[in-house]
């Protein structure tokens, strides 16, 4: 995970980037929409993995920061008529600040207690979005977000999303591959030992949580502008569970795992919903298969397959 990109990885990244840039040219409106949404969820899942995969805690309330970023940006744009830049930045900062406060309390705990405290905080955020009708319009939803004219176009918004998401992913890559990222992994692997070698574990986990909150806020702000609305369901625990599944599906021990998990789960939900009302069963069965046969997620499976093919075990980072 901490290895730099291999030559193969570099080429792969370049190819994907080119494909993303070319998508609107070759694709339909539908592909642009779906590409935008998928990118947003990829960033959302990736941000969560900073808490799970790197610092080893399971957040069950990550949707809170997604929702705060989305709501604050949407409300500032629409109700107060702010320009995009300050609205977007304020939305993301609001998410980050909330994450900083919540993380202060949560990082005192670990494991299941950590998960439950994050859940409790996120449900408070949900309750506030639900109850504060004069500002958020409660469960009617904050419908009809004013998107700046510059972005009020499918293709332009898509490119805007590509730029923001790719830049965010790059920043996350740098963070996780810095000394900070390596210390985080040490914290995950062994809280006690990390403490011995002089890592201030609680502060590290706090920092990881705050960074995760920041990028969840970015994803949320983008999402609100994409669907031109924010809804209380985006803060509910089921949304947190969905992004958690995305992250785990892809694999938490790989940088790119959550991105792949988000893309796959997103498409699965879309496609199964198209063919059957029993899509929960389809999803459940897929989950079971992964858990029982692919415990390290899709990326883990990929690694094992390539390792088998090459007869060696050295494809780190080349996801």
């Amino acid at each position: 995970m901490t290895a730099p990109l291999t030559a193969f990885g570099k080429v792969a990244c370049l190819v994907i980037l080119l494909a993303l840039l070319a998508l609107p040219v070759i694709g339909s409106d539908y592909l642009i929409d779906i590409g935008t949404e998928m990118l947003i969820f990829a960033l959302f899942a990736l941000s969560l993995n900073l808490i799970i995969g790197y610092s080893g805690n399971v957040s069950f309330g990550h949707a809170a920061y997604f929702a705060i970023g989305g709501y604050v940006n949407a409300i500032l744009l629409t109700t107060y008529g702010w320009p995009l830049l300050p609205a977007f930045v304020t939305g993301v900062l609001a998410a980050t600040l909330t994450a900083a406060v919540v993380a202060y309390f949560c990082t005192r705990l670990t494991d299941i207690y950590f998960a439950m405290l994050t859940l409790a905080f996120s449900m408070l955020v949900w309750a506030i979005a639900f109850k504060w009708r004069s500002v958020t319009h409660g469960d009617d939803g904050f419908v009809g977000v004013t998107v700046p004219a510059l972005l009020d176009d499918r293709m332009r918004f898509y490119y805007f999303t590509v730029i923001i998401v790719v830049a965010s992913i790059a920043v996350l890559w740098v963070i996780t591959h810095s000394a900070f990222g390596r210390s985080l992994v040490a914290v995950r692997e062994n809280l006690g030992r990390a403490g011995f070698i002089g890592i201030h574990t609680r502060r590290m986990r706090w920092q990881a949580f705050v960074v995760a909150g920041f990028f969840a806020g970015v994803a949320g702000a983008l999402f609100g502008m994409l669907i031109k609305g924010m809804y209380v369901e985006s803060a509910f625990w089921t949304q947190s569970a969905q992004v958690l599944i995305m992250t785990l599906l892809g694999g938490i021990y790989s940088f790119f795992g959550p991105i792949i998990g988000a893309a796959v789960l997103f498409m699965l939900e879309r496609l199964t919903n198209e063919y059957t009302e029993y899509w929960p069963t389809v999803l459940g069965v897929i989950l079971l298969v992964i858990l029982l046969f692919l415990p390290d997620g899709l990326v883990g499976l990929g690694k094992r397959l390539t390792a088998k093919a090459k007869g060696k075990d050295k494809t780190e980072g080349a996801t």
Binding site: L287, L288, L291
Partner: peptide
């Protein structure tokens, strides 16, 4: 384990 129980919920 959590995810497994979640799959059972769905099914």
């Amino acid at each position: 384990q959590l995810l497994l129980t979640f799959a059972i919920v769905l099914i």
